[in-house]
Design a protein around this nucleic acid. Sequence first.
DNA 1: GTTAGCACTCTCTGACCGAGACTGCCAACC
DNA 2: GGTTGGCAGTCTCGGTCAGAGAGTGCTAAC
Lengths: 346, 346
Amino acid sequence: MLEPTPLDERKQQILKAVVSDYTMTGMPVGSQVLAAKYFIALSSATIRNELADLVGTGYLQQPHTSAGRVPTDRGYRYFVDFLMEPEAASATVRRTVKQEFESAPRSVDGILEKAAMVLSLVTENVSLVTAPEVSESRIKHIDLVSLEPQAVLIILVLEGNLIKQQVVHLERATSQEDLSRMAAMLNLKVKGQTADELLGRLEVLGAEKAEQRRIIERLIESITTHQAQRQTVVLHDGVRNLLRHPEFVEVGRLEELMELLEQGAQLASILQQVAFEKDVEMIIGRENTSSGLRECSLVLTTYRMTDRIRGTIGVIGPTRMHYGQVVARVRLVSHATSEVLAHLGN
Amino acid sequence: MLEPTPLDERKQQILKAVVSDYTMTGMPVGSQVLAAKYFIALSSATIRNELADLVGTGYLQQPHTSAGRVPTDRGYRYFVDFLMEPEAASATVRRTVKQEFESAPRSVDGILEKAAMVLSLVTENVSLVTAPEVSESRIKHIDLVSLEPQAVLIILVLEGNLIKQQVVHLERATSQEDLSRMAAMLNLKVKGQTADELLGRLEVLGAEKAEQRRIIERLIESITTHQAQRQTVVLHDGVRNLLRHPEFVEVGRLEELMELLEQGAQLASILQQVAFEKDVEMIIGRENTSSGLRECSLVLTTYRMTDRIRGTIGVIGPTRMHYGQVVARVRLVSHATSEVLAHLGN
DNA sequence: GTTAGCACTCTCTGACCGAGACTGCCAACC
DNA sequence: GGTTGGCAGTCTCGGTCAGAGAGTGCTAAC
C-alpha cells in the first residue's frame, strides 16, 4: 500500500473529474476532454502535467501509452473518502422503493427477498442480503409436534418472529399428548429467556426426565447454531443487471463471481465482517481478498429489525460504478427494509 | 411443424452420428469426418448426398455453404425420441450423489437445495427444482402463537412435514392461553383432514366464536393458496456451469435466461406443466415458448415425497447437450431426492 | 507555472489475401 | 440405381497492412 500522498486542490479536482467522467462514459479520459468539459481555464497541456503526476502517485493509470487516464482502486478510494458529494435518492426511486415494499409479504423471508429484488432494481447491480443475525435472542414460544413415534419436530418462535424448526429423534416413543404437556410446561419456564440463560438453568429445568432434557438440549443447540447456519444464507438478486455492464462482456470474469454468489460461504464471511457501527462501508477492487471480486466493488450497510437483530444489505457491482448514487440507494433500501421489518411485530 | 418424414435406417444412423459428434465437439460435422469416424464402408460423397436429404427434410442445417452440418431442433427431437440409447449413470456419479445427500440437512427445504446443488454439479448445467406441490394434503398439527395482542401466528404442519405459517390480525385482543386452548381444540377436530373436508365442516367447527371462525378461514386459505404461492418458488443452481459452455460466450444470450431464472414466475408455469405420468420430459430449443429458452433445452422429471406430494426437478442447458447422459443423471438425482424425502417421515 | 507546438506511440477499423474446409454437381462405375 | 472420384465453387478464419484518430510527452517560449 502506498502511503497517502496529499493531493493539492487542483489535483483533487482533476481526479474527481476523471472519476466522474470515466464512471459515466466508460472510456479513458483524455486531457483535452477534461480541459473542454471541466477546466475551461486551463489548457490541455497543463492538465497533462497534472495527470502525469497522478499516475506517478498511483491514483490514475493508463491502459496504454496513447490512451486517456482511468482511476486506479486507490483513485476510487480517495474519491469516495474525500471527494464524493453526498447524493439523495431521486423522488422516482423513492416512490419505486415505497411501492415495492407495500406489496411485500408480511414475513421476514418475504421482506428480505423483496429487499434484494428492489435493491438490484434501483442500483442495477447485484444485491446481497444476509438473514438477520440474532444476538441474545429471546424465546417467545415453543411447540413440539410428533412426526413419528420416535421423532419430534421442535418449532421455536424467537423474538422478531423468527421461526426455527428442527427434528429430534428420541430413544423412546412419545405420544403427542405427552409432547403437548411438555411444551406447555416449557413455554411457562422458558419464555423470554435467551439461550445462554437457558443453558445455565438446564439442571433446574429438565433433570426430571431424560427425554425432556434431550429436547431442551436440542432447543439450545438450535438457537446457538442459528447464527452459524443462517449466516451462510446470502440472498442475491440482479445478476442479469451485471450482464449489461460492459466490464462483463467477457464471460470469464463472471464465472468466478457466479461461483462466489452460488456457493455463498465466502461471501457470507465478507458480509459478516461489516461493522454495525459504520454507516456505509465500501470495498473497492483489490481491497477484496477474493480474487473473484478483484474487479468489483461492494457497497454495504446494516439493516435493523430491532436493536439486537441486524443484518447486512448491499450490492456488488463493477469497480466503475456511480458510488454516490449507489450509496444513496443502498441506504434508502436499507432504511425501508428496517422500517418494514420493525413493523412486522416483535 | 413439418410432418414426421420417415427416415430410412441409414439416414437414421447418419443423423445419430451427426448429433453425437456435434454434441462432443461443438463443431459442424463434415462428410469426411463422418465417413472416417462412423461409416468406413461409405465414401464421403455418398454421405454428402444423405446429408443434403437430411437438410432438405429439416433434420440438419448448415451454418453456411461451406460448413459441415448441425442438428436442428427437429433433428434433436428425432434423436431423443427414436435414436438415443439408454445410458446409466456412472458409478462415480452415483457415489457423488449418494455422498452429497448423506450430508443433506433433514428438512424439505434443505433437501431440495441439496438436490439442486447436486444436479447442477453432475450435469454441469443449471438445475431447477420446484417446491413440492401438495394435492389434498392432510393437516397434522396446528399451533397458534400470540405475537401481539391482536396478531396471531398460525403454524400449520401438513402431511410430509411441510410447515406453513401465516400471520392473522384479529378484531379483539386474545391471550396466549385462549389461543392455546383454541389450538388444542382445533387439533382434535381438524387433524387428518384435508382443506376441502374442512371447508365443508366450517359451520360445524367454529360457529361458536367469530374469532375462531376467522382463524379457521385463514387456515384453509393458507392451505389452498399453498400451491399458488409455493409454485412460484423455483430453486436453481449452477449458473456458473453455463458460463463454461461455448454457446454462452456472448453475454446477450445469457441475459434473457438470467431474467427468466431470477424472475421465476414464467419458469414456474413451464415446470408446472410437466406431466407427472411421464418419465422424463424434454423440451428442445424452439419448442420452448419463452424466447429466452430458444437456444436451450430442458430435461425435466418428477420427484415424489409421497403419492400425493410431488414436485418437478430437472435442468436447463444448451440445446447441444449430451441428452442420454443428462437424462440418466436427472433421473438418478430425482430418485435419490424422492428417496431422501420419503424417509423424512410422514 | 503555463502553454503552444510537434513528433511519437498505440489502438482501431476496414480491406485484402491465402489457406483450409466442405459442399454440390457431374460423369463414370459397379 | 445407388455409389464414387474428381473438381470447381463458396464461405470462414486468421494474418497482414495501411490510414485515421486519439492522446501523450517533451521542448521551447511565454
